[in-house]
């Protein structure tokens, strides 16, 4: 029989942090949320930015890729660095605001993050309530899995944007939209939407999960259903891939989510 009392005894070992420290975090978030709301409103009014177009929320099947929501080009200047990770922590919680995240020695990106975002691996993964954004330089080693289910070894796709787009479009299992030219954060590239339907049985896959394209050392896999929006960009001569990933989402949930990737801008750092 289950001994719930033993589990209850664990209660005595839990050490609550000082409530005042949580209150400070709450106050800081409140201030940031207010300030960010005002700033965003000013940008929207002053910059004449189009409001994000929400897609058809009842889509059951893949439609041709639409030009994603307009890129926000007139951005606030006070982008912050991500807060430092506390010792031993594998992630850091981020308040609402605009952040600058290094991509390489010469390139960074800025992005608006909603409240209660967590940043992993120094911003490689930005997990919001609705999705995970993954942004990385896609050098020559960046590639696609030999087979997303049965052989998840990543093979390089070739050095150009077109090489990678072609490799992604040819991936088995993924339902992908026809690639569309796109501009994100001032960088030109191609946009593709990809899905693995809920009905796909991943139990025969490595780790019961389907592999995504990526760099070998940072590639992730996940269980169906999967919806992804991928921007494959040429940023100042460097190929950069932005993935907006959601496992377990319905398309309408994804469409209603904050337009985080569309707020991305790229900035040289040297």
């Amino acid at each position: 029989m289950a001994d719930w009392e033993k589990l209850r005894e664990l209660t005595y070992q839990v050490a609550p942090p000082d409530l005042a420290s949580l209150a400070r975090t709450a106050r800081r978030r409140q201030r940031r949320a207010r300030a960010f709301g005002v700033l965003a409103a000013l940008v929207l009014v002053g910059g004449g930015i189009g409001v994000a177009a929400v897609g058809d929320t009842d889509r059951d099947t893949l439609q041709p890729a639409e030009d994603p929501t307009p890129t926000i080009t007139d951005t606030p200047e006070d982008a912050l660095p991500l807060p430092g990770r506390p010792p031993g922590a594998d992630q850091v919680s981020v308040d609402a605001g605009r952040y600058r995240i290094p991509l390489s020695d010469t390139l960074a990106f800025e992005v608006d993050l909603p409240d209660e975002t967590s940043a992993h691996d120094d911003g490689l993964f930005l997990a919001t309530e609705d999705f995970v954004v993954k942004t990385e330089v896609a050098g020559d080693a960046y590639g696609v899995p030999r087979h997303p289910c049965t052989d998840q070894t990543i093979d390089p796709a070739g050095p150009t944007v077109d090489d990678l787009v072609q490799a992604i479009s040819n991936l088995p299992l993924y339902q992908t939209t026809p690639p569309e030219p796109v501009v994100l954060g001032g960088a030109e590239g191609m946009y593709v939407e990809a899905r693995i339907p809920r009905s796909y049985d991943a139990s025969k896959c490595e780790g019961d999960a389907v592999q995504l394209p990526g760099n070998r050392e940072t590639a992730v896999s996940g269980p169906p259903p999967y919806i992804g929006r991928w921007w494959i960009l040429d940023v100042e001569g460097q190929r950069v891939v932005v993935q907006q990933n959601c496992w377990g989402c319905r398309p309408d949930q994804f469409d209603r989510a904050p337009q985080t990737p569309q707020s991305i801008t790229f900035t040289p750092t040297s």
Binding site: D3, L7, D90, A209, G222, C246
Partner: peptide, 30 residues
Amino acid sequence: RHLAVVRRHQALDREPEPAVEVGPEHVALV
């Protein structure tokens, strides 16, 4: 929904550090 996927990658690099030592009597039920 999301972080398990991220951690799939992170687990390769580091093990999470528990804040409290959890004994085997608790681990069995959990």
